[in-house]
């Protein structure tokens, strides 16, 4: 806080002030401009897109939600949304089932070689997605998991699990030892301590991890694309890619994009605290 006050107290002349306002405006435009454009396209009517040589208006001539109503009345699109939802929900279930117990152990016990263990657990994620997707697809082909829900769910669980373990671990770590000690003194065994004390107290962190996992699976493209191809089972991201290939009306593309990103934007902003903690942890020492 004091830093900020001091910077402000520097002599600011009119020119500097104008430069400063301009840079805020530029930064806001840089970030918000594209988001606005996406929204604008999604509510554009066809005359605002096919303008016959006239410049595309910055606000549609006749704003309309027709693209959205069209999508929701399309049974194929409905199936695609359902697929994405089912895959994301199953990924959450599986990641939590595997990740929460692991997070509990890593957060509550002084496991020997903890750092090395953590490195071992995340090292599969150190491979670029585009590099690890080939071996995993080949493996899934061999075990008949390509083009199946199970295959994508297993892959998405692999992507999400390290995050669940890390977020969950810090949630468990934050609970004071005294609470656990007292419960044990009063005769609670390991299971009761876990289910009655530790789990309820770590719920906020675990919910964050679950939402994060859901979003990760919801907007995941690379693994879904390799494992499902453009075959029978389609997800939202694959649907969008498929549409792109046939150059459909731009307002329709934008409407699909909005539906794909809206949940991610809303929940990400709600989970800001966890998102930013994850990014800055360990990167600045």
């Amino acid at each position: 806080m004091s830093t900020i006050a001091r910077v402000k107290s520097l002599p600011v002349e009119g020119l500097k002030k104008a430069l400063w306002v301009a840079s805020i405006a530029a930064a806001v435009l840089l970030v918000a401009g594209p988001v606005y454009m996406l929204f604008k396209y999604s509510i554009s009517d066809s005359t605002s897109i096919n303008t016959g040589g006239a410049p595309i208006p910055l606000w549609p001539y006749h704003p309309t939600f027709r693209c959205f109503t069209y999508l929701f009345s399309d049974s194929q699109f409905f199936g695609v949304i359902t697929n994405s939802f089912v895959i994301a929900a199953c990924t959450v279930g599986m990641s939590m089932l595997l990740g929460v117990p692991a997070a509990y152990v890593l957060g509550r016990f002084r496991v020997p070689g903890r750092r090395l263990l953590l490195l071992g657990l995340i090292s599969v994620r150190l491979f670029p997605d585009i590099a690890s997707v080939i071996p995993i697809t080949e493996f899934f082909i061999r075990f008949k998991l390509q083009n199946t829900y199970t295959g994508v769910i297993l892959a998405h669980t692999l992507l999400a699990l390290p995050y669940v373990i890390f977020i969950g671990m810090s949630a468990f770590e934050a609970i004071p030892d005294d609470l656990e000690q007292q419960a044990r003194v009063m005769g609670a065994n390991g299971f009761s301590v876990f289910f009655r004390i530790l789990l309820p107290l770590s719920i906020p962190g675990l919910v964050a991890a679950a939402i994060y996992t859901f979003l990760l699976s919801w907007d995941e493209f690379i693994f879904a694309y390799f494992i499902l191809g453009l075959g029978k089972i389609s997800t939202l991201t694959l649907f969008l890619k498929q549409k792109l290939a046939f150059s459909p009306p731009q307002n329709l593309l934008a409407a699909i994009s909005v539906l794909l990103s809206l949940p991610v934007i809303v929940f990400s902003l709600m989970l800001q605290k966890y998102m930013t903690a994850g990014i800055t942890t360990g990167s600045v020492k």
Partner: peptide, 9 residues
């Protein structure tokens, strides 16, 4: 926000 918009979008 940019981080929350899926790369594909």
């Amino acid at each position: 926000v940019p981080l929350a918009v899926p790369a594909l979008v």
